[in-house]
Simulated assay, not measured.
Amino acid sequence: MKVKISQIANLPTKFGNFKIQAFKEGHKEHLVIFTDPMPDIPTVRVHSECLTGDTLGSKKCDCGEQLKFALDTISNSGGMVIYLRQEGRNIGLLNKVNAYALQDSGYDTITANHQLGFSADERTYEIVEFILEHFGIKKIKLLTNNPKKIESLKNVEIVQRLPVKVEPNPYNEEYLKIKREKLGHLL
């Protein structure tokens, strides 16, 4: 895997003071937000980009709230958020908006993806293991509700899975139900 790695910079945020480093894999530029010092067994959140949730505060998903929860948790416990540029479960922004339109007409998140010719979840996690190895991390506490993320990390010991707790709202209740029932998310 050919990856370009940036310098490390400071990132003061409303959640606390972090360091950041970018990892460029092909055309995708991923970001690692981390505490310094790093604990022996850091808390790690693998978070896929969601422009509508993370930046615009969409209530159709739980992504933005999960990211806030992760940054707050990691600021207090030490660790990192690995922010992956995999918009819309890696179908891209244009297709995500098309999936949203299908959802507006009654499709759930998975059948909308299928209607557009995609699987339920197109994301991959190889870069995560590269990043963890780059930081010399062998054991983690993984902050996730997604069993696919747990299964994908083969070269690191997950000593504990920490749930990501966010409150549902009337706009994402069905979305969360589908994540639990069809994708096996631990909600």
Results as ranks from 00 to 15, higher is better:
2 K>F: 05
2 K>A: 02
3 V>I: 15
4 K>N: 10
6 S>Y: 07
6 S>C: 06
7 Q>T: 11
7 Q>D: 14
13 T>K: 01
13 T>V: 02
13 T>F: 02
20 I>W: 02
24 K>A: 14
24 K>W: 03
27 H>S: 15
27 H>L: 13
29 E>F: 00
29 E>G: 00
34 F>A: 01
35 T>A: 10
35 T>S: 15
36 D>Y: 10
44 V>H: 09
44 V>Q: 07
45 R>T: 04
46 V>E: 09
47 H>K: 08
49 E>A: 08
51 L>R: 13
58 S>Q: 12
60 K>R: 15
61 C>H: 04
62 D>S: 10
63 C>T: 12
63 C>I: 12
66 Q>I: 11
67 L>E: 06
68 K>I: 08
68 K>M: 03
75 S>E: 04
77 S>P: 00
79 G>F: 03
79 G>Y: 05
80 M>L: 14
80 M>P: 03
81 V>W: 10
82 I>C: 11
85 R>F: 04
86 Q>Y: 11
90 N>I: 01
90 N>W: 02
92 G>Y: 07
93 L>P: 06
93 L>S: 04
96 K>I: 10
97 V>K: 06
102 L>N: 11
104 D>P: 13
108 D>C: 07
114 H>T: 04
115 Q>N: 13
115 Q>R: 15
115 Q>Y: 12
116 L>Y: 06
118 F>A: 11
119 S>V: 13
120 A>R: 09
121 D>H: 12
122 E>A: 12
128 V>A: 07
135 F>M: 05
135 F>D: 01
136 G>K: 02
137 I>M: 07
137 I>Y: 07
142 L>K: 07
144 T>H: 05
144 T>K: 05
145 N>F: 09
147 P>V: 04
147 P>G: 06
147 P>K: 05
149 K>N: 07
151 E>D: 14
152 S>E: 03
153 L>N: 01
155 N>L: 01
156 V>Q: 06
158 I>A: 01
158 I>H: 01
161 R>T: 14
167 E>C: 04
167 E>T: 15
168 P>T: 08
168 P>M: 00
170 P>A: 07
170 P>C: 01
171 Y>D: 15
171 Y>E: 15
172 N>D: 02
175 Y>G: 06
176 L>Y: 10
179 K>V: 09
180 R>F: 05
181 E>P: 03
181 E>F: 04
184 G>L: 14
185 H>S: 03
186 L>I: 14
186 L>H: 07
